[in-house]
Computed example of a mutant assay.
Amino acid sequence: MSNKGLLALILLGVVVLVGANTFYIVNEYERAVVLRFGALVNPDVEPGVHIKIPFADKVRVFDGRILTSDASPESYYTVENKRLIVDSYAKWRIKDVEMYYKATGGQEVVADNRLASRIADGLRNEVGRRTLHEVVSGERDKLMEDLTRDMTKTAMEVLGVEVIDIRVKRIDLPEDVSESVFDRMAADREKEAREYRATGREQAEVIRADADRQRTVLLANAYRDAELLRGDGDARAAAIFADAFNQNPEFFAFVRSLEAYKKSFNSGSDLMVVDPSSDFFEYLKNAEGQK
């Protein structure tokens, strides 16, 4: 390669190096500051393509999206002096880039640790003003709202970040307390179960009594209707019988006598002592069947 070609190659490399150190890009989801020989000259660079002085300016880029600070579980005491183990997390993002850089040196881990420490102090104060029931269920949402509001103001003034939300992932009791709490909960559930059973038995007795009453009423009505039908049937049968008797009284008397004979002499060993002149043998004495 000739000297001119080598010189051209060197100049091209210098131009590329200078260009690479002159232009820089800040994305929409990023925040950035510009340092000139270590001094802050642009505390909040807008997204887009920008120019800086090569080798003199240095660009520090930070994540401008919502970040998560996942704190380690901590022990807190309620107003009743009962210990709780609370596991929480926070959502935050950079709001004041200059303040954030000065407070943390642009290191996310530093901001995360400082924010977690302040949230732990805030949780300790909020839990210390409430009872166990209020922390666990009664005022849990209000506790988080109050803590988020206070932490947003403090974090903005100290770290330049905005706390968007703080949430509790889990609340546990120490092992020495859990057993007694679970026993009390089991006793409460057993009490409720007994009350439900007693209420069920009471309702069952009411239903059973009502069913028995309805059964008695139905049977009485059915018996009444049956007696009415039976009486009506007997009356009709008597009327038909009387009408038939009036049509031929002699034949009716003869048939009745035959039925009486059949019932009286049903068995060959039957013995009857009757006066031969009795009306019972009237049709037997007359071969023509006349009285």
Score class of each variant (00 low, 15 high):
residue 154 T to C: 02
residue 161 V to T: 14
residue 139 E to K: 15
residue 110 V to L: 00
residue 157 E to S: 15
residue 163 V to M: 07
residue 98 E to C: 13
residue 102 K to W: 04
residue 110 V to G: 01
residue 155 A to I: 00
residue 138 G to P: 06
residue 104 T to W: 00
residue 153 K to Q: 15
residue 118 R to K: 13
residue 93 R to V: 05
residue 138 G to K: 12
residue 81 N to T: 00
residue 164 I to K: 10
residue 153 K to N: 13
residue 108 E to R: 11
residue 122 G to N: 13
residue 83 R to F: 09
residue 119 I to F: 00
residue 101 Y to E: 14
residue 149 R to Y: 11
residue 116 A to S: 12
residue 136 V to N: 06
residue 129 R to M: 08
residue 114 R to M: 11
residue 85 I to K: 15
residue 89 Y to K: 07
residue 137 S to K: 13
residue 135 V to S: 05
residue 115 L to C: 01
residue 152 T to P: 00
residue 107 Q to K: 11
residue 114 R to K: 12
residue 156 M to T: 12
residue 111 A to T: 03
residue 97 V to Y: 05
residue 120 A to L: 01
residue 123 L to C: 12
residue 145 E to G: 01
residue 152 T to I: 04
residue 162 E to N: 10
residue 106 G to P: 15
residue 139 E to Y: 11
residue 125 N to H: 09
residue 116 A to C: 04
residue 119 I to L: 03
residue 128 G to A: 02
residue 107 Q to W: 08
residue 81 N to K: 01
residue 92 W to S: 05
residue 156 M to K: 08
residue 148 T to W: 00
residue 116 A to W: 04
residue 152 T to W: 01
residue 149 R to D: 10
residue 101 Y to L: 07
residue 86 V to N: 05
residue 119 I to G: 00
residue 89 Y to V: 07
residue 92 W to E: 07
residue 164 I to P: 03
residue 92 W to C: 09
residue 156 M to G: 02
residue 96 D to H: 05
residue 151 M to H: 02
residue 129 R to Q: 10
residue 133 H to W: 14
residue 160 G to Q: 13
residue 103 A to Y: 01
residue 128 G to H: 05
residue 164 I to L: 14
residue 101 Y to N: 14
residue 145 E to V: 13
residue 113 N to T: 14
residue 151 M to E: 15
residue 137 S to P: 05
residue 118 R to G: 02
residue 83 R to V: 12
residue 125 N to L: 12
residue 142 K to R: 06
residue 161 V to E: 03
residue 159 L to I: 14
residue 164 I to T: 09
residue 129 R to D: 06
residue 152 T to C: 03
residue 134 E to R: 04
residue 165 D to C: 02
residue 151 M to V: 08
residue 140 R to P: 02
residue 146 D to W: 05
residue 101 Y to V: 10
residue 96 D to S: 06
residue 91 K to V: 05
residue 139 E to Q: 14
residue 108 E to H: 07
residue 124 R to Q: 10
residue 100 Y to M: 04
residue 81 N to L: 00
residue 153 K to T: 15
residue 106 G to A: 10
residue 148 T to H: 03
residue 134 E to D: 07
residue 97 V to A: 04
residue 79 V to M: 09
residue 137 S to G: 12
residue 116 A to H: 08
residue 145 E to Q: 15
residue 119 I to C: 01
residue 131 T to W: 02
residue 120 A to W: 00
residue 134 E to H: 02
